[in-house]
Write a protein that binds this DNA or RNA. Structure first.
Lengths: 353, 353
DNA sequence: ACCCATGCTGTTAGCGGTAACATAGCCGAT
DNA sequence: ATCGGCTATGTTACCGCTAACAGCATGGGT
């Protein structure tokens, strides 16, 4: 309300116009080069036949003026927008930037451009972000996760563009999906741990109620334990703060509370790394006395004193495949592909062999 | 051709038409609620007076239909775009996501929305990204760094919108700038190191020719060494790969090649952390025999066995201030503010006291 | 009664491009 | 000469929405 109280109430009419810094339009270029706006448009988009001479002249004029086309007008007229919305929960997770890399890479030569939206793991925020994105009429949407509000699902379904939900496939996608089964990943890890002879197994992880993928991993994990006649010996949750530090703290807490724990399963590699550092600090024999495992395969781990057992989440590949679906779907209205990728277990040095 | 003469109610328009999934327009909502498009528009934007009854009816209709406004058309008509372009070199650096957080936070209640572009430290790519961004006619631009191609600078200068260059202030901005002096930061760190009694000082850092800020820090650093009659005892560069791992490797290489080195200055905290882990692994006395320092103050460091000396780069604050400039500049055409923030030295546990 | 402020709604004319369809030269084949 | 069939360019009608202004009741104030 307090923005324009003393600036320029004066001449409301437009005729006095002459604004030297008015932003340029096709007309300016067309006048400067002596051809119609249409021809300029054709040159600038490389569409249709234009004589070499004219092309040169137009390009020269455009360059000289510093003309930058107005995509808003272009998009409205052509009903085409070269944007792909990508909606992710967080940027500080390292996982998502990597997915983004995969997306950008494959989108690069399609003329499509990713636009990122961040939800901070809030379904309401996600709904807003989806709405905002859709209001720009993108050519497709890539959304992390399968869990959304009713309204979000409805909007995506109605949008009439390809939708790809990524990361997870344990559920029902709106349209297409590319990801891994986190439930299965949890199960597999549990099986490997049990096979290695560990029995007193504890879990450390995020408490975020909306990190569905971590939840599913834990579910799969417990399921497998159960099948082997075991149950979690202890569990510890955290939220916020430095993940590495939290990993240390949780590990300490668990080992103090339940001293006979012989394995710690972390919901992500970062806290796992914290746990590893803690154990090494304390001189705990890893993986002899205590085994450790995380999830994700973050690059960071390469620099650790010991390689943490983990499971690759196929982030890059997920980004690529999702982008391919969007890019290739130009006409096939009905998509509904589901692509399940299979993560590989990387035993590292923190599970007994 | 035979267009609409207003006496032709029959389906003259779009004869093949009947598309049940055609995307909705204001007209659909207006028909569904029995008012003019203009009134619907007013309701949806909360602008102008509309009776409570009408408002209800319109909102109900819009909701029922699942209408999502078309911002492309809206922006074209109103000549207003609520977007702010944010151009950064990389997402995998952790530094930039944090800047973004600062930007989003302050933009939140201004109705402006950040749109991110990533350049991968390539000036040419940056030029393209700037061009693309500007073609959407954003309300402002936030660009990392002061070094750009001629064309980039020209485009930004001509755009007629507020431009804020961030992170760095050692140079001449196009318009406004918010950041720290990296040259000074390097100098300060060197002074602290010298004051602590270290004399055989080496540098480990990125080789990227376009990481101007790392370069400036090193320049300032060497300048201060020089003033104290010292020079770098050794230096080591890297590019690509896991920063943590590279930190280990570079540290090992330097200590092997120049065994009498008593301090290692890293161009960022991640490789610094790698160096720290290496030293601890090898049982090297830190900070007694060898001191270490990085740059940035990344949260990660909190979980390390020892707190690495570093210097906060004020990332969040930079994002906030930049956003404030954009948001507050609605009319003040001439901006040109330069805001220098002052990073604080955090000695941590890796410099002798 | 008159007038104007006020609240609510509709009408008109674009915003800056592009799709689709003319149009105009020019060529060789008929 | 006549007729396509190019190539290169111009014209027209929107795309979906909003600024600006134009109604038209209603309701005091004087």
């Amino acid at each position: 309300m307090a923005n324009q109280n003393r600036q320029d109430p004066p001449p409301v009419t437009k005729p006095p116009g002459f604004d030297p810094r008015r932003t340029l339009t096709l007309r300016d270029v067309s006048e400067a080069s002596g051809v119609s706006e249409m021809t300029v448009s054709r040159v600038l988009r490389n569409r249709g036949d234009v004589s070499e001479a004219t092309r040169e002249r137009v390009l020269e004029a455009a360059r000289a003026l510093g003309y930058v086309p107005n995509k808003i007008a272009g998009a409205l007229a052509s009903q085409r927008v070269n944007l792909v919305g990508v909606i992710i929960p967080s940027l500080s997770n390292m996982v998502f930037p990597e997915v983004l890399t995969g997306v950008s890479d494959t989108l690069e030569d399609t003329g499509l451009q990713p636009v990122v939206g961040v939800t901070n793991y809030s379904p309401e925020r996600e709904e807003t972000v989806i709405y905002e994105m859709l209001s720009w009429r993108p050519s497709g949407m890539i959304v992390a996760g399968l869990e959304h509000t009713e309204a979000s699902r409805a909007m995506l379904a109605q949008a009439g563009i390809p939708i790809v939900e990524i990361m997870d496939i344990d559920g029902t996608p709106v349209d297409s999906a590319v990801g891994i089964s986190h439930r299965r990943a949890g199960r597999q890890m549990a099986e490997a741990i049990i096979a290695a002879g560990y029995r007193r197994i504890a879990f450390c992880g995020t408490m975020m109620p909306y990190d569905h993928r971590a939840r599913k991993r834990l579910e799969g994990f417990e399921e497998a334990l159960h099948k082997a006649g075991l149950a979690l010996a202890d569990r510890e949750y955290y939220s916020g703060g430095s993940a590495l530090l939290k990993g240390r703290e949780m590990t300490e807490a668990v080992l103090k509370r339940t001293p006979d724990v012989d394995f710690l399963y972390y919901s992500n590699d970062m806290i796992g790394a914290g746990g590893l550092l803690f154990c090494l600090d304390k001189g705990i024999d890893v993986p002899g006395k205590v085994g450790l495992a995380g999830f994700n395969g973050v690059e960071l781990l390469d620099g650790l004193p010991r390689r943490l057992a983990t499971m690759d989440a196929c982030r890059l590949e997920i980004g690529r495949r999702a982008a391919e679906i969007i890019a290739g779907k130009h006409e096939g209205v009905i998509g509904g592909e589901i692509i399940e990728l299979t993560p590989t277990l990387q035993p590292g040095d923190t599970i007994r062999r």
